[in-house]
Design a protein around this nucleic acid. Sequence first.
DNA 1: TCAAGCTTGATGCAATTGCATCTATTGCCT
DNA 2: AGGCAATAGATGCAATTGCATCAAGCTTGA
Lengths: 147, 147
Amino acid sequence: MPSPEAIKAWARLMRVSRQLVESAEEALKAAGLPPLAWYDVLHEIAEAGEGGLRPFQLIERTLFAQYNISRLLARLEADGLVEKLPVADDGRGQTIRITTKGRETRRRMWAVYGRSIAELVGAKLSGNELTMVSALLGRLRHPPIAD
Amino acid sequence: MPSPEAIKAWARLMRVSRQLVESAEEALKAAGLPPLAWYDVLHEIAEAGEGGLRPFQLIERTLFAQYNISRLLARLEADGLVEKLPVADDGRGQTIRITTKGRETRRRMWAVYGRSIAELVGAKLSGNELTMVSALLGRLRHPPIAD
DNA sequence: TCAAGCTTGATGCAATTGCATCTATTGCCT
DNA sequence: AGGCAATAGATGCAATTGCATCAAGCTTGA
Protein backbone atom coordinates (compact mmCIF):
# COMPACT_ATOMS: atom_id res chain seq x y z
CA MET A 1 0.00 0.00 0.00
CA PRO A 2 2.77 2.51 0.69
CA SER A 3 5.00 3.39 -2.25
CA PRO A 4 8.37 1.69 -2.54
CA GLU A 5 10.00 5.06 -1.81
CA ALA A 6 8.00 5.41 1.39
CA ILE A 7 8.91 1.90 2.48
CA LYS A 8 12.55 2.50 1.84
CA ALA A 9 12.58 5.79 3.70
CA TRP A 10 10.78 4.16 6.61
CA ALA A 11 13.17 1.25 6.71
CA ARG A 12 16.17 3.55 6.64
CA LEU A 13 14.73 5.69 9.37
CA MET A 14 14.08 2.68 11.58
CA ARG A 15 17.45 1.12 11.07
CA VAL A 16 19.52 4.26 11.28
CA SER A 17 17.81 5.61 14.35
CA ARG A 18 18.18 2.32 16.20
CA GLN A 19 21.79 2.11 15.20
CA LEU A 20 22.56 5.65 16.29
CA VAL A 21 20.83 5.25 19.62
CA GLU A 22 22.72 2.07 20.22
CA SER A 23 26.05 3.71 19.42
CA ALA A 24 25.42 6.67 21.65
CA GLU A 25 24.16 4.45 24.44
CA GLU A 26 27.21 2.30 24.14
CA ALA A 27 29.54 5.29 24.33
CA LEU A 28 27.84 6.48 27.50
CA LYS A 29 28.00 3.09 29.09
CA ALA A 30 31.65 2.72 28.16
CA ALA A 31 32.30 5.98 29.97
CA GLY A 32 30.47 4.72 33.05
CA LEU A 33 27.65 7.23 32.57
CA PRO A 34 23.87 6.84 32.82
CA PRO A 35 21.71 6.05 29.79
CA LEU A 36 20.41 8.50 27.21
CA ALA A 37 17.01 8.80 28.83
CA TRP A 38 18.63 10.42 31.84
CA TYR A 39 20.25 12.99 29.62
CA ASP A 40 17.00 13.88 27.94
CA VAL A 41 15.32 14.51 31.24
CA LEU A 42 18.25 16.31 32.82
CA HIS A 43 18.45 18.47 29.72
CA GLU A 44 14.83 19.53 29.90
CA ILE A 45 14.99 20.22 33.60
CA ALA A 46 18.20 22.15 33.26
CA GLU A 47 16.70 24.26 30.47
CA ALA A 48 13.84 25.13 32.77
CA GLY A 49 16.28 26.82 35.15
CA GLU A 50 15.54 27.81 38.70
CA GLY A 51 11.80 27.50 38.32
CA GLY A 52 12.07 23.81 37.60
CA LEU A 53 9.50 21.76 35.77
CA ARG A 54 6.40 19.80 36.68
CA PRO A 55 6.50 16.12 35.76
CA PHE A 56 3.58 16.51 33.37
CA GLN A 57 5.53 19.17 31.49
CA LEU A 58 8.35 16.72 31.16
CA ILE A 59 5.93 14.24 29.65
CA GLU A 60 4.87 16.80 27.08
CA ARG A 61 8.42 17.73 26.14
CA THR A 62 9.88 14.25 26.01
CA LEU A 63 8.04 11.27 24.64
CA PHE A 64 8.15 9.22 27.80
CA ALA A 65 5.07 7.64 29.28
CA GLN A 66 3.77 8.96 32.56
CA TYR A 67 4.81 5.96 34.61
CA ASN A 68 8.16 6.07 32.99
CA ILE A 69 8.78 9.66 34.00
CA SER A 70 7.52 8.93 37.47
CA ARG A 71 10.05 6.19 38.00
CA LEU A 72 12.86 7.88 36.14
CA LEU A 73 12.47 10.89 38.40
CA ALA A 74 12.52 8.62 41.42
CA ARG A 75 15.83 7.21 40.24
CA LEU A 76 17.25 10.65 39.48
CA GLU A 77 16.21 11.83 42.90
CA ALA A 78 17.70 8.77 44.56
CA ASP A 79 20.95 9.63 42.82
CA GLY A 80 20.73 13.21 44.00
CA LEU A 81 20.58 14.62 40.48
CA VAL A 82 17.24 16.35 40.90
CA GLU A 83 15.11 17.44 43.82
CA LYS A 84 11.34 17.36 44.16
CA LEU A 85 9.68 20.39 45.68
CA PRO A 86 6.04 20.71 46.66
CA VAL A 87 4.02 23.12 44.58
CA ALA A 88 2.37 25.99 46.41
CA ASP A 89 -0.93 26.17 44.56
CA ASP A 90 -1.45 22.53 43.66
CA GLY A 91 -1.32 19.98 46.41
CA ARG A 92 -1.03 17.10 43.95
CA GLY A 93 1.97 18.33 42.08
CA GLN A 94 5.65 18.77 42.52
CA THR A 95 8.32 20.80 40.89
CA ILE A 96 11.49 19.12 39.74
CA ARG A 97 14.68 21.08 39.89
CA ILE A 98 18.14 20.04 38.87
CA THR A 99 20.82 19.96 41.56
CA THR A 100 24.45 20.92 41.29
CA LYS A 101 25.35 17.28 41.05
CA GLY A 102 22.72 16.89 38.33
CA ARG A 103 24.23 19.71 36.33
CA GLU A 104 27.63 18.16 36.70
CA THR A 105 26.40 14.77 35.53
CA ARG A 106 24.68 16.36 32.58
CA ARG A 107 27.91 18.14 31.67
CA ARG A 108 29.90 14.93 31.79
CA MET A 109 27.26 13.13 29.75
CA TRP A 110 27.29 15.84 27.13
CA ALA A 111 31.01 15.49 26.70
CA VAL A 112 30.40 11.93 25.54
CA TYR A 113 27.00 12.31 23.95
CA GLY A 114 27.98 15.42 22.02
CA ARG A 115 31.03 13.68 20.68
CA SER A 116 28.86 10.82 19.50
CA ILE A 117 26.56 13.21 17.69
CA ALA A 118 29.50 14.92 16.05
CA GLU A 119 30.98 11.65 14.90
CA LEU A 120 27.83 9.82 13.92
CA VAL A 121 26.03 12.67 12.23
CA GLY A 122 28.08 15.82 12.07
CA ALA A 123 30.98 14.13 10.35
CA LYS A 124 28.82 12.31 7.82
CA LEU A 125 26.86 15.13 6.21
CA SER A 126 27.56 18.72 5.28
CA GLY A 127 25.86 21.60 7.05
CA ASN A 128 23.48 21.97 4.16
CA GLU A 129 22.61 18.34 4.13
CA LEU A 130 22.03 18.35 7.86
CA THR A 131 19.67 21.26 7.48
CA MET A 132 17.87 19.45 4.73
CA VAL A 133 17.47 16.31 6.84
CA SER A 134 16.11 18.39 9.68
CA ALA A 135 13.61 20.09 7.41
CA LEU A 136 12.40 16.85 5.88
CA LEU A 137 12.14 15.07 9.20
CA GLY A 138 10.36 18.09 10.60
CA ARG A 139 7.55 17.40 8.19
CA LEU A 140 7.24 13.87 9.52
CA ARG A 141 6.81 15.13 13.04
CA HIS A 142 3.51 15.41 14.69
CA PRO A 143 2.65 18.18 14.57
CA PRO A 144 4.75 18.97 11.51
CA ILE A 145 7.30 21.74 11.85
CA ALA A 146 8.63 23.65 8.91
CA ASP A 147 11.39 25.95 10.17
CA MET B 1 31.21 20.04 20.17
CA PRO B 2 28.82 19.05 17.36
CA SER B 3 27.55 21.87 15.17
CA PRO B 4 24.09 23.29 15.83
CA GLU B 5 22.95 21.75 12.55
CA ALA B 6 24.16 18.34 13.63
CA ILE B 7 22.42 18.68 16.99
CA LYS B 8 19.18 19.70 15.37
CA ALA B 9 19.29 16.86 12.87
CA TRP B 10 20.03 14.42 15.66
CA ALA B 11 17.22 15.71 17.80
CA ARG B 12 14.78 15.52 14.92
CA LEU B 13 15.86 12.01 14.10
CA MET B 14 15.43 10.87 17.69
CA ARG B 15 12.06 12.46 18.17
CA VAL B 16 10.57 11.55 14.83
CA SER B 17 11.70 7.97 14.91
CA ARG B 18 10.33 7.43 18.40
CA GLN B 19 7.09 9.04 17.43
CA LEU B 20 6.71 6.97 14.29
CA VAL B 21 7.50 3.73 16.06
CA GLU B 22 5.01 4.57 18.72
CA SER B 23 2.30 5.33 16.17
CA ALA B 24 2.88 2.16 14.22
CA GLU B 25 3.02 0.11 17.40
CA GLU B 26 -0.21 1.65 18.57
CA ALA B 27 -1.95 0.86 15.31
CA LEU B 28 -0.88 -2.77 15.54
CA LYS B 29 -2.02 -3.08 19.09
CA ALA B 30 -5.34 -1.45 18.29
CA ALA B 31 -5.83 -4.13 15.65
CA GLY B 32 -5.05 -6.85 18.15
CA LEU B 33 -1.81 -7.75 16.39
CA PRO B 34 1.66 -8.50 17.72
CA PRO B 35 4.32 -5.79 18.08
CA LEU B 36 6.61 -4.48 15.37
CA ALA B 37 9.53 -6.66 16.39
CA TRP B 38 7.53 -9.70 15.39
CA TYR B 39 6.95 -8.25 11.97
CA ASP B 40 10.62 -7.56 11.43
CA VAL B 41 11.54 -11.10 12.23
CA LEU B 42 8.69 -12.68 10.31
CA HIS B 43 9.60 -10.51 7.35
CA GLU B 44 13.20 -11.66 7.32
CA ILE B 45 12.27 -15.29 7.73
CA ALA B 46 9.63 -15.07 5.04
CA GLU B 47 12.11 -13.48 2.63
CA ALA B 48 14.43 -16.39 3.21
CA GLY B 49 11.82 -18.73 1.74
CA GLU B 50 11.84 -22.50 2.07
CA GLY B 51 15.43 -22.67 3.16
CA GLY B 52 14.72 -20.71 6.28
CA LEU B 53 17.28 -18.78 8.26
CA ARG B 54 19.66 -19.48 11.09
CA PRO B 55 19.15 -17.36 14.20
CA PHE B 56 22.57 -15.79 13.86
CA GLN B 57 21.64 -14.63 10.37
CA LEU B 58 18.61 -12.98 11.85
CA ILE B 59 20.84 -11.18 14.28
CA GLU B 60 22.93 -9.84 11.42
CA ARG B 61 19.94 -8.68 9.42
CA THR B 62 17.96 -7.12 12.23
CA LEU B 63 19.52 -5.15 15.04
CA PHE B 64 18.30 -7.35 17.83
CA ALA B 65 20.59 -8.72 20.49
CA GLN B 66 21.27 -12.41 20.53
CA TYR B 67 19.27 -13.14 23.67
CA ASN B 68 16.47 -11.08 22.27
CA ILE B 69 16.27 -13.14 19.11
CA SER B 70 16.49 -16.31 21.10
CA ARG B 71 13.48 -15.45 23.18
CA LEU B 72 11.54 -13.82 20.40
CA LEU B 73 11.88 -17.00 18.37
CA ALA B 74 10.71 -19.00 21.35
CA ARG B 75 7.58 -16.86 21.48
CA LEU B 76 7.02 -17.08 17.76
CA GLU B 77 7.38 -20.82 17.92
CA ALA B 78 5.03 -21.06 20.88
CA ASP B 79 2.51 -19.18 18.77
CA GLY B 80 3.04 -21.52 15.87
CA LEU B 81 4.30 -18.78 13.56
CA VAL B 82 7.67 -20.34 12.90
CA GLU B 83 9.21 -23.76 13.25
CA LYS B 84 12.67 -24.73 14.33
CA LEU B 85 14.42 -27.43 12.39
CA PRO B 86 17.70 -29.08 13.26
CA VAL B 87 20.57 -28.36 10.90
CA ALA B 88 22.20 -31.30 9.20
CA ASP B 89 25.83 -30.27 9.31
CA ASP B 90 25.89 -28.30 12.54
CA GLY B 91 24.56 -29.92 15.66
CA ARG B 92 24.41 -26.62 17.55
CA GLY B 93 22.27 -24.76 15.12
CA GLN B 94 18.74 -24.67 13.94
CA THR B 95 16.95 -23.39 10.92
CA ILE B 96 13.93 -21.20 11.38
CA ARG B 97 11.18 -21.45 8.84
CA ILE B 98 7.95 -19.53 8.69
CA THR B 99 4.73 -21.54 8.89
CA THR B 100 1.49 -20.98 7.05
CA LYS B 101 0.06 -19.37 10.13
CA GLY B 102 3.15 -17.20 10.32
CA ARG B 103 2.70 -16.03 6.77
CA GLU B 104 -0.92 -15.27 7.48
CA THR B 105 -0.04 -13.24 10.57
CA ARG B 106 2.59 -11.36 8.65
CA ARG B 107 0.02 -10.56 5.97
CA ARG B 108 -2.46 -9.22 8.48
CA MET B 109 0.26 -7.21 10.18
CA TRP B 110 1.34 -5.69 6.91
CA ALA B 111 -2.18 -4.51 6.21
CA VAL B 112 -1.94 -2.36 9.31
CA TYR B 113 1.77 -1.60 9.30
CA GLY B 114 1.82 -0.70 5.63
CA ARG B 115 -1.06 1.67 6.12
CA SER B 116 0.82 3.33 8.95
CA ILE B 117 3.86 3.80 6.75
CA ALA B 118 1.74 5.24 3.98
CA GLU B 119 0.02 7.68 6.32
CA LEU B 120 2.97 8.65 8.47
CA VAL B 121 5.58 8.95 5.78
CA GLY B 122 4.20 8.38 2.31
CA ALA B 123 1.55 11.06 2.69
CA LYS B 124 3.89 13.64 4.14
CA LEU B 125 6.65 13.83 1.55
CA SER B 126 6.81 13.61 -2.23
CA GLY B 127 8.50 10.72 -3.96
CA ASN B 128 11.53 12.86 -4.60
CA GLU B 129 11.76 13.95 -1.03
CA LEU B 130 11.43 10.40 0.19
CA THR B 131 14.26 9.35 -2.05
CA MET B 132 16.32 12.21 -0.73
CA VAL B 133 15.66 11.25 2.88
CA SER B 134 16.65 7.68 2.11
CA ALA B 135 19.86 8.78 0.49
CA LEU B 136 20.83 11.08 3.31
CA LEU B 137 19.98 8.57 6.00
CA GLY B 138 21.86 5.95 4.04
CA ARG B 139 25.01 7.92 4.65
CA LEU B 140 24.39 7.82 8.38
CA ARG B 141 24.16 4.07 8.33
CA HIS B 142 26.96 1.86 9.35
CA PRO B 143 28.30 0.88 6.97
CA PRO B 144 27.14 3.83 4.85
CA ILE B 145 25.11 3.03 1.78
CA ALA B 146 24.87 5.33 -1.16
CA ASP B 147 22.26 3.96 -3.58
C1' DT C 1 43.85 -37.15 18.63
C1' DC C 2 42.76 -34.20 21.83
C1' DA C 3 42.95 -29.85 24.46
C1' DA C 4 42.01 -24.98 23.87
C1' DG C 5 39.33 -21.79 21.93
C1' DC C 6 35.53 -20.25 19.08
C1' DT C 7 30.64 -20.24 17.59
C1' DT C 8 25.70 -21.09 18.35
C1' DG C 9 22.01 -20.66 21.04
C1' DA C 10 19.71 -20.78 25.79
C1' DT C 11 18.88 -19.10 30.44
C1' DG C 12 19.06 -17.28 35.62
C1' DC C 13 18.62 -13.09 37.59
C1' DA C 14 18.19 -8.10 38.05
C1' DA C 15 16.43 -3.88 36.02
C1' DT C 16 13.14 -1.70 33.15
C1' DT C 17 8.80 -1.24 30.72
C1' DG C 18 3.88 -1.65 30.01
C1' DC C 19 -0.61 -1.95 31.73
C1' DA C 20 -4.05 -1.14 34.77
C1' DT C 21 -5.39 0.89 38.66
C1' DC C 22 -5.12 3.68 42.81
C1' DT C 23 -4.85 7.86 45.80
C1' DA C 24 -5.03 12.59 46.40
C1' DT C 25 -6.28 16.94 44.73
C1' DT C 26 -8.44 20.24 42.00
C1' DG C 27 -12.04 22.27 39.10
C1' DC C 28 -16.59 22.49 37.58
C1' DC C 29 -21.45 22.44 37.66
C1' DT C 30 -25.71 22.66 40.01
C1' DA D 1 -21.64 23.74 49.78
C1' DG D 2 -21.70 19.03 47.57
C1' DG D 3 -21.05 15.79 44.24
C1' DC D 4 -18.64 14.31 40.03
C1' DA D 5 -15.54 14.36 36.53
C1' DA D 6 -10.75 15.46 35.41
C1' DT D 7 -5.82 15.92 36.52
C1' DA D 8 -1.30 14.71 38.85
C1' DG D 9 1.49 11.37 40.16
C1' DA D 10 2.56 6.65 42.23
C1' DT D 11 2.52 1.68 42.20
C1' DG D 12 1.43 -3.68 42.02
C1' DC D 13 2.05 -7.04 38.85
C1' DA D 14 3.20 -9.23 34.46
C1' DA D 15 6.11 -9.09 30.40
C1' DT D 16 10.33 -7.75 28.33
C1' DT D 17 15.15 -6.40 28.23
C1' DG D 18 19.95 -6.49 29.55
C1' DC D 19 23.79 -8.72 31.47
C1' DA D 20 26.43 -12.37 32.44
C1' DT D 21 27.16 -16.94 31.95
C1' DC D 22 26.35 -21.54 30.49
C1' DA D 23 26.15 -25.84 27.70
C1' DA D 24 26.86 -28.05 23.53
C1' DG D 25 29.07 -28.58 19.31
C1' DC D 26 32.54 -27.28 16.06
C1' DT D 27 37.60 -26.19 14.58
C1' DT D 28 42.30 -25.82 14.81
C1' DG D 29 46.86 -26.74 15.76
C1' DA D 30 50.53 -29.11 18.16
